[in-house]
Design a protein around this nucleic acid. Sequence first.
DNA 1: CCCCCTAATTCCACTTAGTGGAAATGAAGG
DNA 2: CCTTCATTTCCACTAAGTGGAATTAGGGGG
Lengths: 258, 258
Amino acid sequence: MAQARRYAGGVDGNRSLERGIEILRAFRPGVDTLGNGEIAERTGLPRSTVSRLTRTLVNSGMLDEVRAERAYRLAASVISIGHAMRTGSPVLNEIGAMMRAESAKRRLNVGLATADRTMMVYLESIRYSPRAALRNVVAGQQVPMELTSLGRAYLAGIAETRREQLLKLFKRRSAAATKALLADVRTSISSVERDGYCAVSWQPAVLAVATPIVLEGLPVYALNMSLQNVDRSAALASELGAYLNAFAAKCKEVLASR
Amino acid sequence: MAQARRYAGGVDGNRSLERGIEILRAFRPGVDTLGNGEIAERTGLPRSTVSRLTRTLVNSGMLDEVRAERAYRLAASVISIGHAMRTGSPVLNEIGAMMRAESAKRRLNVGLATADRTMMVYLESIRYSPRAALRNVVAGQQVPMELTSLGRAYLAGIAETRREQLLKLFKRRSAAATKALLADVRTSISSVERDGYCAVSWQPAVLAVATPIVLEGLPVYALNMSLQNVDRSAALASELGAYLNAFAAKCKEVLASR
DNA sequence: CCCCCTAATTCCACTTAGTGGAAATGAAGG
DNA sequence: CCTTCATTTCCACTAAGTGGAATTAGGGGG
């Protein structure tokens, strides 16, 4: 009857695979282990189904079983695949080294991110610190799209229809302060259109600027620069913005000739 | 009839989910995009099945579609999940900072890895360089288990039955020099049992030592230290080994009290 | 030490969701 | 414009997957 399509109120696709992926997603940063019960709760799937799917994920090497606590944790395979994603990314390959150099030269944080649903996820985030030992690089960390310069630059870079979809999702997500927030987001988007970048101070004493990178055949990325322990000032923002615009121009040049 | 078990000559599990994961695994480092045809070749799955599963993976956010070349690439979600794995790992959480400090103090590379099938995958690899700008950290990179100090330390740390399974796999994999290689592997394992570490010079002018970390309720890990641009010498190897043993002891202390 | 209680796993009848060969569609090139 | 290769859609078939119920396995008390 059904032709591998449109199962109970869904879109095309393979239900078991979708559910298996949902289970993997249930492991968020900070969550170490999850038992089948907790997974069932978080995903809304029947317990017996979860039991079978986690078994499959263990066999496929995506989950490790912790027999003692009857629980599972993400296995090493997931970072292998993550690594394949990063090394496969043409953008990161081309400009990763430039980002490091720029971070060292300007003494600030430089990041490259793209969207995962309604979050921005860093492909690379180079954290500058005066002490060399504290400098570090993070990949995979998520920050909220609507609250960050990265996310707003991304929104400015994507197709309008998609942007409006996402804005609706934010509205549904945060009950309070929605109106002001959305206005803020739109201001940032205009700022990108006018100046090439937007500045947001999402976290206290951190000033961040970001700009979109739009390339044919690739998802939209956003590039950012940020400084910790500073007072937010318009002058500083426009200085950072100028650095960012110059750097982004250099990146786009390199990427265009790939 | 079939109760979600033992489909055509397989073990228990969900076939579609297994296949979907296989598709994700087909994207190895260096492979940027893959079309459905190539995926079908690499995985041995029927083309129509691949077509449906890739669509599902796109809907689930694990793959990005590149319409222009009718191909797919791994999406940002996979590094989100990879990041969740790393932050969820109690071992990396506890000793990551210590590893950085040790790398800076001893001026050498420090790595933590575990197994993904027959490969070792780095949870963290801290690459020391005299120039601060060149120091970097990699996660997810794979190295062959049977050829590296990391892999051999891991083999020394796991249950004997599992070890013998893996050794058989290596035999099947590399046709040439198998006998000598396996003897080498066993020598390394004895070396771990006797000295606490093993030394291997897998890549030219790189000397590496590694030791297993075995903890209740966690997969076996391996910790390594390595130096580039050195001549292999027994004296240097035992010096590195001593550093490693001291460091591993400190790590185990921290991990025991978690 | 045994028994209860909770949670995970297995069982099983049901039937839909998935399958893969064949047809259709679509892109690239002569 | 027509051919060729590749990818996607179609569709009849049925095995694979489902989820509620029964069962088993842990893990605290009593």
